[in-house]
Amino acid sequence: MANNTTHTIEYRTLSKILLVLLFLTFVTIGVTSFHLGPFTVTVALLIAGLKSFLVLSNFMHLKYESLLLRILVAMVFVLFVVIVLITFIDYAYR
């Protein structure tokens, strides 16, 4: 038993998360039908980010994992964003 350190998440909690995720999905579809211009992508990405945060922290149990693992996951996303931004230093000014 000592080996199992994973937190048990109740069915109720999981279903609630799913409802939030579905709600957010429909919000994204709704938002893109308005013409927000350049902000559409921003909004869509923000919502996607929120959704992935929910999946990571609840479905993937990250909420209950060690601080170290949470930092590592955050680091990977930050690294990717930084690489994209740096690449755009080239493309935006060419």
């Binding site: 690294l79 690489i83 740096i86 230093i89 080239d90 493309y91 935006a92 000014y93 060419r94």
Partner: peptide, 21 residues
């Protein structure tokens, strides 16, 4: 080391901003 890759591409037509960065 992850963030310096562009120094292989100075003469490739990359933007000036990217080059000094």
């Amino acid at each position: 080391g992850f963030l310096v890759w562009g120094h292989h591409m100075y003469t490739s037509g990359m933007s000036d901003q990217a080059r000094w960065f």
